[in-house]
């Protein structure tokens, strides 16, 4: 395969190196001449010290016959333009963009980028998976940090399972407002019977968290059990 990599940061550098080692033909475009020559010293003459956003340099790199263009600069707007130019101007069959703002994923897909890699989204996903499921998950802060939005994932043994919000002692300054059940969010009514697996979304004052934990998750364990994941 002939791959054009645009952006000689850490990602572009290691990507180029790995691709060469796996026997692919690679050209790396890095617009900073200093960085470009540094990479060339290390991995050989596959580096063009040119701005890959410019059509004529993509052409110079061989975009007309490239199988893949991977845009991995640190700037979303550059990665978008590189992929669009590759796709529409040079008919490159496969374009891959690195995206930093996860919100741009959808837009890039709409605008014709074939594959979108979002490190932010990946790390986010990994962090969320690593949070022990019995914990309260902080979704966000409001009112300058005085209020927080919390998700409680109800596990077997939670004091809230089989009860309704009305039967729980919800601390003052705190509201349970929605439940996500089987991936479907619905407003939480005072008479909704809570089940194992429900994700209860609450908003409340920061200091209510401990009480909320007690009601929805159970008393804080003295020692963290080792097998909670």
């Amino acid at each position: 395969m002939f791959v054009i990599v645009v952006g000689g940061g850490k990602v572009g550098y290691y990507l180029t190196k790995e691709l060469i080692e796996s026997g692919h033909e690679v050209v790396l475009l890095e617009k900073d001449p200093g960085r470009a020559s540094q990479i060339a010293d290390e991995i050989g003459s596959v580096v063009l010290a040119r701005d890959g956003c410019e059509g004529k340099y993509l052409a110079e790199a061989g975009a007309n016959r490239a199988d893949i263009v991977a845009a991995v600069t640190g700037d979303d707007e550059d990665n978008l333009v590189i992929c669009q130019m590759a796709k529409h101007h040079f008919s490159v069959p496969r374009t891959i963009a690195r995206v930093n703002n996860p919100k741009n994923e959808h837009l890039f897909r709409q605008l014709g980028v074939d594959e979108i890699i979002s490190p932010t989204r990946m790390i986010l996903g990994s962090i969320e998976q690593d949070i022990p499921v019995h914990e309260l998950l902080h979704l966000g802060a409001l009112g300058g940090g005085e209020l927080e939005i919390i998700e409680a994932h109800l596990q077997p043994g939670s004091p809230a399972v089989g009860r309704t919000p009305r039967e729980l002692e919800i601390p003052e300054g705190c509201t349970l407002f929605a439940v996500v059940r089987d991936g479907v969010p619905t407003p939480l009514r005072p008479d909704t019977v809570l089940r194992t697996g429900d994700k209860v979304i609450a908003i409340g004052r920061t200091e209510c968290e401990a009480l909320l934990h007690e009601q929805l998750i159970g008393a804080e364990p003295e020692i963290e059990p080792a097998d909670t994941r």
């Binding site: 956003c53 700037d75 979303d76 707007e77 550059d78 978008l80 333009v81 669009q84 837009l107 709409q110 605008l111």
Partner: peptide, 16 residues
Amino acid sequence: EGDNRNIMAAQIAARV
């Protein structure tokens, strides 16, 4: 001053 910024902003304006 950035062509790519302008292109991206314009596409968000039109598409989104």
